[in-house]
Amino acid sequence: MGQTGGETVHNRISVLRAERGVSRRQLADALGVHYQTVGYLERGEYSPSLHLALRIAAFFDVPVEVVFALEPFARIGAAPE
């Protein structure tokens, strides 16, 4: 469902939402998608189109690399390797 080559796109959508006090429905409404789509994205069950990824980054006013990555994000507070 939107993923190619079996690659997972990791994201920090739920972290960014929590930091800003934004619900899934509020984010979905701002992006013009169904609120369940936000859940699918957060769980990694759906990889966004480039257009949607850029809109999500713009909504949170951060570079797209802050929201999405091909490798899992380090846990916040984890010691650097």
Rank of each mutant, 00 (worst) to 15 (best):
7 E>R: 14
7 E>N: 14
7 E>K: 14
8 T>F: 14
8 T>A: 15
9 V>Q: 11
10 H>R: 08
10 H>N: 13
10 H>C: 09
10 H>F: 15
11 N>D: 10
11 N>T: 11
11 N>S: 10
11 N>G: 04
11 N>Y: 08
13 I>L: 06
13 I>G: 00
13 I>T: 01
14 S>W: 08
14 S>M: 11
14 S>G: 03
14 S>Y: 06
15 V>W: 06
16 L>C: 03
16 L>V: 01
16 L>M: 13
17 R>Q: 14
18 A>I: 07
18 A>V: 06
19 E>T: 06
19 E>W: 10
20 R>F: 01
21 G>I: 05
22 V>M: 02
22 V>N: 03
22 V>Q: 02
23 S>P: 02
23 S>M: 04
23 S>L: 04
23 S>V: 05
24 R>M: 12
24 R>C: 07
25 R>D: 14
25 R>C: 06
25 R>E: 14
25 R>W: 06
26 Q>P: 04
26 Q>L: 03
27 L>K: 01
27 L>R: 00
28 A>N: 05
29 D>C: 05
30 A>L: 00
30 A>D: 00
31 L>Q: 03
32 G>L: 01
33 V>F: 03
33 V>Y: 04
33 V>L: 04
34 H>M: 10
35 Y>T: 10
35 Y>I: 07
36 Q>R: 11
37 T>S: 12
37 T>I: 07
37 T>D: 09
38 V>A: 04
38 V>E: 05
38 V>Y: 02
38 V>C: 02
38 V>M: 04
